[in-house]
């Protein structure tokens, strides 16, 4: 199935939950926050939250930052909800 992950299309081979997706991506669940179709998923719900075709998922973490630490060119892609530049 195809979903949108951090703004880009992403293909999953079979059924998945937030937990299995994070494991597949080798992401430590304690270092991130996850949005599933614009709703924040609590960490204790990762295993119970199933992912469906067309779902939009955002996985964010903390990065170095002050006011304008992200270069203009990449800015549009790294903020949650950003779309590909035309």
């Amino acid at each position: 199935m195809t979903i949108k992950l951090n703004g880009d299309p992403f293909t999953l081979d079979g059924p998945a939950t937030i937990s299995t997706l994070l494991a597949h991506l080798d992401i430590d669940s304690r270092r991130v926050a996850v949005e599933h179709n614009f709703i924040i998923v609590k960490r204790d719900q990762y295993a119970a939250t199933k992912i469906a075709e067309g779902d939009e998922i955002e996985i964010v973490n903390f990065v170095g930052g002050g006011g304008d630490s992200v270069a203009a060119a990449s800015k549009r892609r790294w903020r949650i909800g950003d779309q590909e530049e035309p």
Binding site: N6, V60, N61
Partner: peptide, 19 residues
């Protein structure tokens, strides 16, 4: 200290975590 909230870099998984 302040930190920014950004999408995880999925293409470069070698990047160290700020934390």
């Amino acid at each position: 200290v302040t930190v920014a909230v950004r999408r995880v870099n999925l293409t470069d998984r070698t990047k160290e975590s700020l934390l």
